[in-house]
Design a protein around this nucleic acid. Structure first.
Lengths: 228, 228
DNA sequence: GAAATAAAATGATTTTTATCATATTTTAAA
DNA sequence: TTTAAAATATGATAAAAATCATTTTATTTC
């Protein structure tokens, strides 16, 4: 089992604030797991008894609607932490975390997290900062969902995906999503998402290389996302 | 100037965890202010240098869209605290806080808040709990905005408003909103909101008494909000 | 208390988006 | 490698929601 002190992924999250002593302690209690593509790491409505730190891999956070449709709330990748919201609010898990590709994840028991929150002020502050930032993003998202037309939201989402996942060696957004998943992110029907992607391609704003998407005119896409 | 130790509104928020000593200190530094109906307490994009505690009055948290339209993200009332998200994430204020009626508000400087976070673990935990809960609510909101039709969202919003503000002595939801504000909450055109309210009245689910709204069949409204 | 202004209500029409149907392409499985 | 299944694509149509126009009703303001 690897040691948390040596793990460099933690520099991207609140665990970077832990002392060597705290890291040793957590190392002893943590477990590592592999989540295969399509599998759930967390499930909506369940209790959670620890914090997950994603070492590697991409995933989606989703919510199942009353009509049975999936809504993608957020994308996750290596360096992200999960489960702290539920632990801190003492509520059940609110979202499903599903692997988009195989993920390596570490699990740290709740007790250790709570102990560290009590002992290490920098850790508390870092967690608060993380959640506060997420809340701000969520509020922006509410506004955009409520007021922007589907085309604008699609443009916004493509820019956002490139921001999070970067591009591969051909310049394509480096995450493989089905058209349905794109639709479930922007909140529209799959056919509508497909149609709008085709339009963006026709207008020379993006390229569709199989399932992969390449943003060929970022400025145009930005304008579209802002309603021009 | 009143003393925070005597103030009972704090039992509704994180300030309830403060020691008498901390309360004395904050009492000395706090300022009280009155925000008249329609005035801004916080403004999107501004820096903030403290935390607001609402003693009394109702308000809305809004976001201005690129198209100039207002989106209402959340309603606030006595007992709520504001500004902590921005302080904790070290980001600019993300939302406008606008009084729906005259509000009494206390302002506590950032320095005192940060000192207390460092000294009082219960306070930190309580703040985290508050923001974590808000994040969960926001995620639910994203999902509903993205996937529920306008009628369902209106039903949902009416139930939510009654939950937050309660009812007056005639059983009407105890907050006065314009039809435009209702539309800006559910993310639709004012005319659509008006039309759907009229339909709900025609169907005997709600009553419209002037500008006020009375839920006359809560179960029916719940069903509508869930798409039945 | 009358005039002016703003808000609410409703009809007609257009635009946007979803649904249904079907064809084509891609991926997975036998 | 062939077949089956799933995903993508596109057209036609229906439904939902926005916009524009106008009237009625409240609310301010002088």
């Amino acid at each position: 089992m690897s040691n948390c002190r040596q793990c460099i992924i933690k520099r991207f999250n609140a665990l970077k604030t832990l002392t060597n002593e705290e890291l040793e302690c957590i190392s002893e209690h943590k477990t590592s797991l592999i989540i295969k593509k399509g599998e759930n790491l967390m499930t909506e409505g369940n209790a959670i008894n620890g914090l997950y730190c994603i070492k590697d891999g991409k995933g989606k956070l989703t919510k199942l609607n009353t009509n049975g449709k999936e809504q993608i709330i957020k994308f996750i990748k290596g360096g992200d932490i999960l489960g702290h919201r539920s632990i801190l609010s003492e509520e059940l898990v609110g979202l499903n975390a599903i692997a988009l590709e195989d993920m390596h994840v570490c699990f740290i028991p709740k007790g250790d997290i709570m102990d560290t929150i009590k002992e290490n002020n920098l850790f508390s502050l870092s967690l608060m900062k993380n959640i506060s930032h997420q809340l701000n993003e969520a509020n922006t998202s509410i506004s955009q969902m409520a007021q922007k037309p589907v085309k604008d939201r699609l443009a916004e989402t493509l820019l956002h995906l490139e921001d999070i996942f970067g591009v591969d060696n051909e310049g394509c957004i480096d995450v493989l999503l089905t058209r349905e998943e794109i639709a479930n992110t922007i909140g529209t029907a799959t056919e509508s998402a497909i149609r709008l992607l085709s339009n963006l391609k026709k207008d020379g704003v993006i390229d569709l290389i199989g399932k992969r998407i390449k943003i060929s005119n970022k400025n145009a896409l930005k304008n579209i996302s802002e309603g021009y």
